[in-house]
Design a protein around this nucleic acid. Structure first.
Length: 467
DNA sequence: ATCGGCTCGCGCAA
DNA sequence: TGCGCGAAGCCGAT
């Protein structure tokens, strides 16, 4: 636990406080959460209860119905679970600019300390950089993102092969479940007036009165919340783990876990997924290495990249060989060359690319393998690398349920050569790895995927939605 | 269908 | 200092 906690200011615990405040920013769950567990331990030591604070603001770029719905769908069960464990629970939704923006500071007035999630990107990273100095109580950021804590790596890793052996050495020690929470004191304090009670039935009404973009509809495939996350995991283990190694790069086969949206909002932890996978694999004699490589090693590499990068959304992070070769080819002719709108509304002349973009528009996520093709083609068909990068980030910010996180930026920058190696030189890409439609046709069933997405577009019914 | 070449640089063994 | 090796590559030769 020690190597998961960072104290981000130098204040002392306030005496005579009413509670320890746990601010769930990135990890919207009570179970398998090192942050909440740390808050509970601290509260027990101080003889205090824990108050959990979860919030949703409407004022970040491209806030829309899809993201709001996915967050709100998790709230009723979080409220139930935190209370069941003896903690208090407050949910605050800032719907319009005239709603207060100082709720955390109000709650902190009666707190002995603030405990929150350590997270290297998005709003959480901004909050954790700015808020601690404004408080007169301790501010602890706890890393519950990966199986191996970010702090165990002391520098930015060059590629998967440099981090892999280190991760594997630490696994026996890190693959331990988060201890069960036992709060010695129940929260019996008042429920603040700004608390919003969310019920599954009133979510559409709540969303409709927020000052956000209502044109991006909720995902056709994924609903938010911890229960959905656990069902998705169960579905994966029972149906797809056995096919994973063979079919993970065959998008039409649906053999991947689809857990990234749930990991993104912290409805489930990578640690509990890893433990459940190992246990299921052992019980049913199934191979787990391929999936755990993605879940543990690639995820750790992405968080390591975000933690040690000044700006994880910048091409400045590319290795020298990639930056150099892309610069050399910056003047190469792009043909075709599309605008942001042509990309956004899937109006290219490549039916596979359009289908992948439509999957983004409808489901809010592209299959991992085709997403790489999607990114490579945006580079090939954009006026410049910078413009291609901005298009990819924009499309993720606006439409993806798994956007704005370390994996997002690592996957995008991988398309430009990050964590990769050089290959044969060619136009536009230089020595950066190229991907072709012929390659996709050779290796995957492109027609089946296009047909599936066309049917989804036509009917609005997603057969891959887990009920 | 399958294989080697392409090409850089990290990290470890020596 | 030498050497093995790497996220999803392509391409041409066999």
């Amino acid at each position: 636990m020690k190597d998961r906690v960072r104290k981000l200011n130098d204040r002392q615990e306030r005496a005579g406080a009413a509670y320890v405040l746990y601010w769930a920013q990135a990890n919207r769950r009570a179970d398998s959460n090192h942050g909440f567990a740390y808050a509970a331990g601290l509260a027990n030591r101080l003889g205090l209860p824990v108050l959990c604070y979860e919030a949703l603001t409407s004022f970040y770029p491209y806030a829309n119905d899809r993201l709001h719905t996915f967050v709100l769908e998790g709230v009723p069960e979080n409220e139930r679970r935190f209370k069941q464990l003896g903690a208090g629970y407050v949910f605050y939704l800032r719907r319009t600019k005239s709603d207060p923006n100082d709720v955390l500071y109000r709650l902190a007035r009666d707190a002995a300390a603030v405990v929150t999630d350590d997270y290297p990107t998005s709003l959480t990273a901004q909050h954790n950089a700015r808020v601690p100095a404004k408080l007169d109580i301790p501010y602890y950021a706890v890393d519950s993102s990966c199986v191996v804590p970010m702090s165990r790596m002391i520098k930015r890793e060059y590629a998967a092969y440099t981090i892999r052996p280190k991760i594997h050495r630490m696994l026996p020690e890190c693959l331990q479940p988060v201890p069960e929470i036992e709060l010695r004191r129940r929260y019996t304090g008042p429920v603040p007036g700004f608390h919003l009670r969310v019920e599954p039935s009133n979510i559409p009404a709540i969303v409709s009165c927020c000052d956000i973009d209502h044109s991006v509809r909720p995902s056709t495939a994924w609903r938010g919340g911890r229960r959905q996350a656990l069902r998705q995991l169960e579905h994966f283990l029972e149906n797809d783990l056995r096919r994973y190694d063979r079919l993970r790069n065959e998008p039409s086969a649906h053999a991947t876990s689809n857990l990234s949206p749930y990991l993104r909002f912290g409805y489930i932890s990578s640690l509990e997924i890893a433990l459940a996978t190992l246990s299921y694999g052992r019980a049913h004699a199934l191979p787990t290495d391929g999936f755990l490589e993605q879940l543990i090693v690639r995820r750790a590499l992405a968080f390591n990249f975000a933690r040690f990068s000044e700006n994880p959304q910048s091409l400045d992070n590319l290795p020298d060989w990639a930056a150099k070769t892309l610069r050399k080819h910056a003047g190469d002719k792009r043909s075709p060359c599309y605008s942001r709108e042509e990309f956004e509304y899937a109006r290219t002349r490549d039916e596979l690319w359009n289908a992948a973009q439509k999957e983004m528009l409808l489901r809010g996520k592209i299959h991992g393998y085709y997403r790489m093709y999607w990114g490579k083609k945006i580079i090939e068909w954009s006026a410049s690398c910078q413009e291609a990068l901005e298009t990819m980030i924009y499309l993720h910010d606006r439409y993806a349920l798994d956007g704005r996180d370390p994996n997002t930026y690592t996957n995008i920058l991988w398309c430009f050569g990050l964590h990769d190696r050089p290959w044969r030189e060619r136009p536009i890409f230089g020595r950066v790895r190229y991907m072709s439609l012929d390659g996709m046709r050779r290796k995957t069933d492109v027609g089946a995927y296009i047909g599936e997405i066309e049917a989804l577009e036509r009917t609005g019914q997603d057969p891959y939605r887990i009920q």
